Simulated assay, not measured.
Amino acid sequence: MSNTHSIPAFGLGTFRLQGQVVIDSVKNGLDLGYRAIDTAQIYGNEAEVGQAMAESGVARKDLFITTKIWVENYAQDKLLPSLQASLAKLRTEQVDLTLIHWPSPGNAVPVAEFMAALLDAKRQGLTRQIGVSNFNIDLVQQAIAAVGASEIATNQIELHPYLQNRKVAEFARSQGIAITSYMTLAYGKVLHDPVVQAIAHSHAATPAQVVLAWAMQLGYAVIPSSTKRANLQSNLLAPQLKLSDVEMAQIAALDRGERLTSPEGLAPIWD
């Protein structure tokens, strides 16, 4: 059974946003029509995200909330309590998706142990779905061995025109696991690419809309963040933009394996 239908294609990221900045971003996003919000324990903003959602007036049933378990909380006796703490901060009894944020450093906690704990969290109703983030093919295979492919909703990975991560994406697709692309705009680097700018010009669109549309046309979910309401509003138009096969091929040709995030001690050996 495939999970891919159940991850919203378009959401709002909150990475690196703190304090009032993240409250304003989430409130603006919800006001504009965003309904999927992505956070993580290590972002240090779950309480602010929870506050923004509570004050937005948007009903909980209309929201899709994702959080990620931090590496210190992977052990079987720590994962559930840490998720319960996240739920308290987020002011909800259940999140929609909980991810393992990075592989366990030095394999200190085996994949089978934390995936079993994560599945237990789902069975207890703390999260509707579970998944992983920053996993290479070998780690995804280990996760599948632990809980079954049908239990893994997504692998959230760095993926943008300069790093298209095709091997990981193709393996995930073969297993019915959705890919969520983070840093889809490559910290804004791809917005200055002449190819992207030319496509944007031909559609009277923004470069960000083009890149987000490209990722969604490939079947990936995206979670761009912005502190500017105008950008949040503009990005929301990306799902309506349809790129031609030629334009998709032009962006495909931009892949140069340029990885922007690979923290030492956390990152696996990438495919």
Score class of each variant (00 low, 15 high):
F64V: 00
L32I: 14
V49H: 05
K61S: 15
A40F: 05
Q41L: 10
F15A: 12
I42C: 11
D62M: 01
Y34W: 03
A40P: 01
G57R: 07
S56K: 08
Q18A: 15
G19N: 09
R35F: 00
F64S: 01
V26M: 06
I23V: 15
G33Y: 06
V49Y: 01
T66H: 05
D38A: 13
L63R: 09
T39C: 07
A59R: 15
I23F: 13
N28V: 09
D31F: 10
I65M: 11
D38G: 10
A40R: 02
R35M: 04
E48D: 12
T39F: 03
M53S: 10
A59V: 12
M53K: 11
K68P: 08
V21E: 15
I69S: 07
E46Y: 07
S25Q: 01
I23C: 03
Q41A: 13
A47H: 05
E48G: 09
N28D: 15
G29L: 02
V58T: 14
V26R: 07
G50I: 08
G44D: 04
I65C: 08
I42Q: 10
Q41P: 09
T67G: 03
G44C: 11
A52G: 02
K68Y: 06
N45R: 02
V71Q: 11
Q18D: 05
A40I: 02
V49I: 05
G19E: 01
A59S: 14
Q18N: 14
N45E: 00
R35W: 04
T14F: 08
V49S: 04
Q51H: 11
K27R: 15
G19P: 06
L63H: 13
T67M: 04
Q41W: 10
D62H: 04
Y43D: 00
T66L: 09
G19W: 02
R16A: 14
Y34G: 02
A59K: 15
A36E: 01
V49K: 02
D62E: 12
F15R: 10
L30F: 07
N45W: 01
F15C: 08
Y34C: 06
A40T: 05
F15M: 06
F64T: 01
T66W: 06
V22S: 03
E55M: 11
E46N: 09
A36G: 04
A52S: 05
Q18R: 15
S25E: 03
G44A: 13
T66A: 11
K61E: 15
W70T: 03
S25D: 02
I69V: 15
M53A: 10
V71T: 13
Q20S: 14
S25T: 12
W70Y: 13
K61D: 14
A47G: 14
V49M: 04
I69N: 03
Q20W: 01
G50Y: 09
L63Q: 05
T14N: 11
D62K: 06
G33H: 11
V22H: 06
Q18T: 14
A40K: 01
A47T: 13
Y43K: 05
G50V: 11
E55N: 12
V21C: 13
L30H: 01
G57C: 07
R16Q: 14
S25Y: 06
V71A: 11
Q41S: 12
A40Y: 02
N28W: 10
R60D: 03
L17W: 04
G57T: 08
R35K: 14
G50E: 07
